[in-house]
């Protein structure tokens, strides 16, 4: 890979993995028991997520790994409250989650936000970038702020993701590149500062160079704001590198879970072993540019 030179600036991540230690002592922020999602009825029934149990701690970076079609996005949407749960219970910050009314949903979404897989389809093409960012300020109660203050907040958010606010005003999202759009998405999260961030394959649609930058930003969000990040990926090597704990998903079921070192260095489930054997350089120091 010749990407190496081009991305020399973004090489903060070629070091050994960084884990937060005391997982057990942290409070639970999102957990679920027997969470199931069935699409369709009768003969056309698909069980996308099948009796899944999980527990995510505050400030943890959890990876959910599985191949295409294993139900990762479906699980993420259930966690986000975007689709209904067929069966099972989800607890948010220790209490059973209640999103029965739109007011309660809005309250819930102040605590949990998302980054989507495909940045190109994630923005309304009729809305300007300012609208996207202003909506976030309004959602966190900044509706009454003076305009100058709002601009300052947007500038700060853009600065965090290495974008220039002055260049973005009056532009539409589709006028940006994929990587820039994904960074704009992170700027949104930066403004909203939710407790939990669900990142559904945030780097799968963009090039290796932008990928490192995005991952770096996610780690920064975790370290600086203490966000819990649910990182969904099909790439077990990447998961090993950045996460504290890992869940392996196959056909809607969680087949293995534990800390990243446990799961990847001593895999038990055959599916995990197969996933690991597909990645050639897993035991060498990880170079993100070859991901």
């Amino acid at each position: 890979m010749t990407m190496h030179d081009a991305c020399a600036v973004d090489q903060h991540l070629t070091l050994a993995p960084k884990r937060i230690g005391d997982l057990e002592n942290r409070p639970l922020c999102l957990s679920g028991k027997g969470v199931t999602k069935v699409f369709g009825t009768g003969a056309k029934q698909t069980v996308a997520v099948d009796h899944v149990d999980f527990a995510f701690h505050e400030g943890e970076l959890v990876s959910i790994v599985g191949e295409s079609g294993s139900g990762k996005t479906t699980l993420a949407k259930m966690l986000l409250g975007l689709i209904s749960v067929t069966q099972g219970e989800i607890c948010f910050q220790g209490k059973p989650r209640d999103i029965s009314t739109s007011r309660k949903k809005r309250e819930y979404w102040k605590g949990i936000q998302a980054i989507f897989q495909d940045p190109f389809s994630a923005f309304n093409v009729f809305n300007k970038i300012d609208t996207v960012l202003l909506d976030c300020i309004h959602m966190t109660g900044g509706r009454g702020l003076p305009h100058a203050k709002k601009v300052e907040m947007m500038e700060e958010a853009c600065c965090f993701v290495n974008l220039k606010y002055a260049e973005l005003t009056n532009k539409y999202p589709f006028e940006l590149s994929g990587g820039q759009m994904q960074r704009l998405m992170i700027a949104r999260v930066f403004l909203l500062k939710p407790r939990i961030l669900v990142a559904d394959e945030p780097t799968s649609m963009i090039d290796a160079c932008s990928r490192a930058t995005i991952l770096d930003m996610l780690l920064q969000l975790r370290d600086e704001i203490g966000m819990t990040i649910l990182f969904i990926t099909h790439d077990i090597g990447l998961a090993y590198y950045i996460s504290d704990s890992v869940y392996i998903m196959e056909h809607g079921k969680i087949v293995e879970q534990g800390t990243a070192d446990e799961v990847i260095l001593t895999p038990k489930a055959p599916y995990t072993k197969r996933l690991i054997s597909d990645v050639p350089k897993i035991y060498e120091p990880w170079d993100l540019t070859t991901v």
């Binding site: 986000l80 975007l82 739109s102 979404w109 989507f116």
Partner: peptide, 15 residues
């Protein structure tokens, strides 16, 4: 079910 609608919902927009 498009992501831009999901994003709009996550931004707390009304129906």
């Amino acid at each position: 079910n498009r992501d831009h609608v999901n994003l709009s919902r996550l931004s707390g927009h009304s129906l």
